[in-house]
Write a protein that binds this DNA or RNA. Sequence first.
DNA 1: TTACAACAATTGTATATACAAATGTATATC
DNA 2: GATATACATTTGTATATACAATTGTTGTAA
Lengths: 148, 148
Amino acid sequence: MDVEERIRTDYKLPLEQKTIIHLLLVNNTINERIAQALKPFDVSAQQFNVLRILRGQKGKPANLSTLNERMVTKMSNTTRLVDKLLNKGYVDRMTCPSNRRKVEINITNKGNAALRKMDQVMDNIENELLQQFSQKELQQLNFLLHKF
Amino acid sequence: MDVEERIRTDYKLPLEQKTIIHLLLVNNTINERIAQALKPFDVSAQQFNVLRILRGQKGKPANLSTLNERMVTKMSNTTRLVDKLLNKGYVDRMTCPSNRRKVEINITNKGNAALRKMDQVMDNIENELLQQFSQKELQQLNFLLHKF
DNA sequence: TTACAACAATTGTATATACAAATGTATATC
DNA sequence: GATATACATTTGTATATACAATTGTTGTAA
């Protein structure tokens, strides 16, 4: 049963409930597509997210709490997530010299190269997911999402 | 960092990317609120979802593949999810007499009673999440989500 | 009627996630 | 300078989820 059909099934629901369910379903679609597309790279959506954050740092290292703060789903397993990126050679990690409680995490050249390939795939997914939307509709959607 | 601030941080991103990230962030907010609100009832969002589907059956039993099909996140652990509802006495389960491969799952009176209490809490959350939206905006949002 | 494919659910396993407790480091107070 | 508090990360544990393999049942074709 696809999203549209399921929503139609529930047409009697109050608009509020329908909206929330609709959002959850759409999100699920997006997550599945992203996970599927990243599978060949052997990274999870969260790991991809971390790589993007690190790239955004432009060489400035990020510590764990920064990553945690900026990730989509907050959690306390950032350590283990970074472990996995480390195993793949996509990031490096060292304790911060000025404050040895902190760690400094950087994306490696290998990480950047892999990320560029992922970017292409992600671009395709975005276009695919959003192909039904005009530019004006995208702006509307952003405006509405902004109200949450 | 709240949603708004994070989106603002990324203002340079193309609208497409921003929209996807925005959706993921909003969804995360919703999921967290729901999980938090259901915690006193000791059910996960998925379990709540299943209870609602069963109620919607109006006495007609649902089998596992029906549940699986209608759940927000598709998965193969529906068996174990139903196990948990069974332990709580919220559903009962019997093998289908006409086709012994199938199981028939029903919501119990206890399940219905618990669900009614959860409904109230969920109504509050929905109102809280959507308080910034006019009725017209809700319709717009639904229309746009429908395009996915 | 037997053999085989399709179906429905369950189980096994690896990974992911949430939450709490523990570790190690820095800062403040006496 | 010893003690307590706060900070940043790591570790432990229970639960959740994804995916594949297995079990048991039914339908079908030789």
